Amino acid sequence: MPYSFTLDDVAFLRSDAGKAALAGCSELDASRIADVAAARRAVGEQRAAAVLETVSLRRKSAGKLESSSDWLFTGDAVQQASATPVARHRAARLAGLAVHDVTCSVGADLIELGRVARVALGSDVDPVRLEMARHNAAVAEVAVLVARADALRPVSRDAAVAADPARRDSAGRRVWRPADFLPPLDELVDAYPGRILSVKCAPGMDFSIAPWADEVELVSLDGQVREACLWRGVSSGVTRRATVLRSDGTQWTLTDSLPDDIPVRDPGEWLIDPDGAVVRAGLVRHYAAQHGLWQLDERIAYLTGDTPPPGVRAFRIREQLPYREKTLGQALKKLDVGRLEILVRGLDVDPDALRRRLKPRGHDESTVVLTRIGRSPVAFVCRAERIPTEGFHSG
């Protein structure tokens, strides 16, 4: 069970004695009995658990939240917090406004809002998380206002509202029905009529159950879809948006305001698997039209063309054949393939099980893309290549 922090714990961890305890225990691991004993000797039985849990949570946050090495967290807060580039992108769309984060937790999103908003207010029902948010904002040197309040009982007027409802029940199990969110999604929306709304949700949610949303935005970071955001009051003619972020600071956005008229044709020189945000936002055809690509099959998200888009991992086709396991094995043997990646879309095939059965033993490396064109299963043996952002010319 995760440690349950108290206000007294937070006060200690923010004190000079607490900071010294955290520094002295920074190399310890709560999963090792000897380290737990060492922490108890160093800081006492009463404080050891809070110190060790904080050390552990800071480690977990390091790859997700920038400059968080001196922050305070709860376990749930680290798990639910948006990665900093994602939070920063969402905040940028609210720049210059007064914004109220009505589920601010320990402040990860609130701090990014505070960097760009005219005024940033954060509120939460949990006093422990609020104290952590105050601490974290001070560490980040960002000016925000913090108040204890129920998200369903507004304490601000006119401000844009940002929210991240909890999507796990009391037992820690993920919930999918918006009525089971905390606070429930429809009640949250009804509490702020006429306001700009930005509501973070899981990317797998059925967005048709949020008819109030003017726009659904899917966001990926370094190729992994991280979240969906439901927007009200910020869009003009856009109902679906895909935003692709990279840790190096580059990003691009695609919306359904762009054309999507593309052909379905035989494969070109390359196969392209669009970013997951594009696929989940239903913008595969828009992406293809923007980059001069076409579809192999109207129902399959793989695209093809003679020149891949810049900055993607694309697959140069070496051989195309009807998918039969024996035939594929023979082709891999002929091409001397030993290291094999298998990608599947539109077929019921377990890539790991197939790889074990194929037993490739050659010296070359290939990617096999298994998909369906019409009713026919097809295998493409490809060479994966990372396409430069600039200066690429198809060979």
Rank of each mutant, 00 (worst) to 15 (best):
Thr255Asn: 02
Pro351Thr: 05
Asp124Tyr: 13
Tyr302Gln: 03
Ala17Gly: 04
Leu221Met: 12
Phe73Asp: 01
Arg174Ile: 04
Glu66Phe: 04
Val99Met: 03
Arg372Thr: 14
Thr255Ser: 11
Leu328Ala: 07
Met1Ala: 09
Val119Pro: 01
Glu341Gln: 11
Val234Tyr: 05
Ala288Trp: 01
Asp8Ala: 14
Arg372Leu: 15
Gly292Ile: 03
Arg226Ile: 13
Gly305Thr: 02
Pro259Asp: 02
Cys104Val: 10
Asp126Gln: 08
Lys60Ala: 13
Ser82Thr: 15
Gly305Cys: 04
Leu65Tyr: 03
Arg232Pro: 02
Asp348Pro: 05
Glu141Asp: 14
Asp150Ile: 07
Asp352Pro: 01
Glu298Gly: 02
Asp306Val: 09
Arg383Ala: 10
Leu188Gly: 11
Val369Thr: 02
Ser56Glu: 15
Glu227Val: 12
Val106Gln: 14
Gln79Val: 04
Lys19Ile: 06
Met132Thr: 10
Asp297Phe: 07
Ser394Trp: 03
Arg129Met: 15
Trp176Asn: 02
Asp256Leu: 03
Asp164Val: 05
Ala11Met: 06
Arg88Tyr: 02
Thr6Glu: 11
Glu215Met: 04
Glu227Pro: 08
Ala120Trp: 03
Ala191Thr: 08
Val128Glu: 11
Lys64Glu: 06
Arg246Ile: 00
Arg177Thr: 14
Leu271Cys: 00
Ser236Phe: 11
Ser376Asp: 14
Ile342Trp: 05
Leu52Gln: 07
Leu332Ile: 02
Thr250Cys: 09
Gly204Pro: 00
Leu335Lys: 12
Leu130Pro: 10
Pro183Lys: 12
Val139Arg: 13
Asp352Asn: 14
Ala37Gly: 11
Val234Leu: 15
Gly282Ser: 00
His100Gln: 10
Trp294Ala: 00
Ala42Tyr: 07
His363Leu: 14
Arg324Pro: 02
Arg246Pro: 05
Ser376Cys: 08
Phe315Gln: 11
Tyr192Glu: 00
Pro267Tyr: 12
Thr54Val: 05
Pro184Met: 03
Gly311Val: 03
Ile272Met: 03
Arg265Asp: 09
Pro274Cys: 01
Asp180Ile: 06
Glu66Gln: 09
Arg316Ala: 03
Trp252Asn: 07
